[in-house]
Design a protein around this nucleic acid. Structure first.
Length: 414
RNA sequence: GCGGGAGUAGCUCAGUUGGUUAGAGCGCCUGGUUGUGGUCCAGGAGGUCGCGGGUUCGAGACCCGUUUCUCGCCCCA
């Protein structure tokens, strides 16, 4: 294959696509800030054990999707497949336990060795928030509210559904897991091939199997709430009550589970039907055990991550950047003057399009193509009276302006 | 990792049961307009038909392999 092809599952972000990404991440950053989330960035690679220790030994992400390599110093390095573990590592590395609670927003590329599909690439981008240090259910609700607010500001909230479930605390989750294994083991021979594997690796996954026969067995499977202790039930009730209070609509989904080991209590996803096989736009939950798993002090946390590519496919085309003004010199002498004028106007805060070559017709055509709102024409006539001609590119109307009054006359095109 | 569909110009696509020199629209360039963009008219550039092999007198078309995209499975944002 030609070496000029990008690596499979990677894409160049050309200006049009980049504008969509920026519309998504800038809106997310700005809304998150309203909720007290400050932006941070962690390295795109970490020691492999940052991920392997936290995501779960049997998760697909760890077992088959990580980009892992040995660097020249013999260290095992992994390109981050998600950012929560990195953020927690950063939290511990920098001794931020002193300043709890911490609210972080992040954006950046993630890497997973997967089969590319619509809305699924090997290098993709996520935004996310993490709220560290608040054990109360209100933190879960704040995190969900922030996410919903971002989706709303992008104009896509009403095209998603908030699915929510509780996995309970560690005791409840383990109890439920044991109950499920016991139940499904009775039907092991009739389970699908995938589900037989899940039985040992991640029994809760059998609950959302798409296999028709599995679904029949699942229909009578024990339910999570029956294994939940009183504390876990109370926690989830508070979450739902507070969501109701804020008018955030949700769909209770007892089959909603998590692939990564560190989740407990609240699990949620904003899903859509617009992206083919990829339903999840934004997903997250509570991860009280994560920091302990990494060797830190017991610290609660809750957060979500969202796919930038997935959201940018759903939003309307963002409006282009600032109004620009084209400068069109006619003749060598005018070019001299125009070259300085472009510099002067840019420092006065205008966006200037200044083509360095071409006759007047070409330059006018270019001004039109870049969407300039006005063209400043400078030729012999204009130089003689020490000014320029301003052509409004929309109406075609032309007015004369002296160099002295130019900036104030251009104010309406800012 | 598994299964289905596709790959022809920068983009969207046509190309008949295998037959001479592979087309259209859009976009791009030049001219009609020596100081005026969008509209119009005329002309032009741009293709190893994804790549490699095979069948055939002859392959864009058929066969095999491969690669990329795409749809689904697994899993996930």
């Amino acid at each position: 294959m030609s070496s000029l092809q990008p690596v499979r599952g990677t894409h160049d972000l050309l200006p049009e696509e980049m504008r969509r990404h920026r519309a998504v991440t800038d809106a997310a950053q700005s809304v998150s800030a309203q909720y007290g989330y400050e932006e941070i960035a962690t390295p795109i690679f970490e020691f492999t054990n940052v991920f392997s220790r936290t995501l779960g030994d049997t998760s697909d992400v760890v077992t088959k999707e990580m980009y892992t390599f040995e660097d020249k110093g013999g260290e095992m390095i992994t390109l981050r497949p998600e950012n929560t573990a990195s953020v927690m590592r950063a939290y511990l590395s920098n001794g931020l336990q002193q300043t709890l609670p911490c609210r972080f927003f992040y954006r950046g590329p993630m890497f997973r060795y997967e089969r590319p599909q619509k809305g699924r690439q090997r290098q993709f981008h996520q935004i996310g928030i993490e709220c560290i240090g608040i054990p109360a259910a209100e933190a879960d609700v704040e995190v969900i509210a922030t996410g919903a607010h971002i989706l709303k500001s992008l104009g896509i909230l009403d095209r998603t559904t908030l699915e929510i479930n509780s996995l309970g605390d560690t005791d409840s989750r383990n109890a439920y897991r044991d109950t499920l294994v016991e139940y499904f083991s009775k039907y092991e021979s009739s389970l699908s091939k995938d589900s037989k594997e899940r039985l040992t690796k991640n029994p809760m996954r059998i609950l959302d199997s798409k296999d028709e026969n599995d679904r029949k067995i699942v229909a009578d499977a024990p339910l999570m709430p029956d294994s939940m202790n009183a504390e876990s039930k109370g926690f989830f009730e508070t979450v739902l009550m507070r969501l109701d209070q804020l008018g955030i609509a949700y769909n209770l989904n007892t089959r909603l589970v998590r692939g990564l080991d560190y989740y407990c209590h609240t699990a949620f996803e904003f899903t859509t039907t617009e992206l083919g096989a990829q339903g999840a736009v934004m997903a997250g939950g509570r991860y009280d055990g994560l920091i302990t798993q990494m060797g830190g002090p017991a610290t609660p946390g809750v957060g979500w991550a969202a796919g930038v590519e997935r959201m940018s496919m759903m939003i309307d085309e963002p409006t282009a950047q600032a109004n620009s003004i084209a400068i069109v010199p006619i003749g060598d002498e005018a070019f001299d003057k125009a070259f300085s004028l472009a510099h002067q106007l840019r420092h006065a805060g205008f966006a200037i399009d200044f083509g360095v070559s071409g006759n007047m017709k070409k330059r006018m055509k270019r001004a039109d193509r870049v969407g300039a709102v006005a063209a400043l024409m400078i030729g012999e006539d204009e130089l003689a009276r020490d000014g320029v001609t301003i052509r409004d590119m929309e109406t075609g109307e032309q007015t004369e302006a002296s160099f002295a009054s130019l900036e104030s006359q251009l104010d309406r095109y800012r």
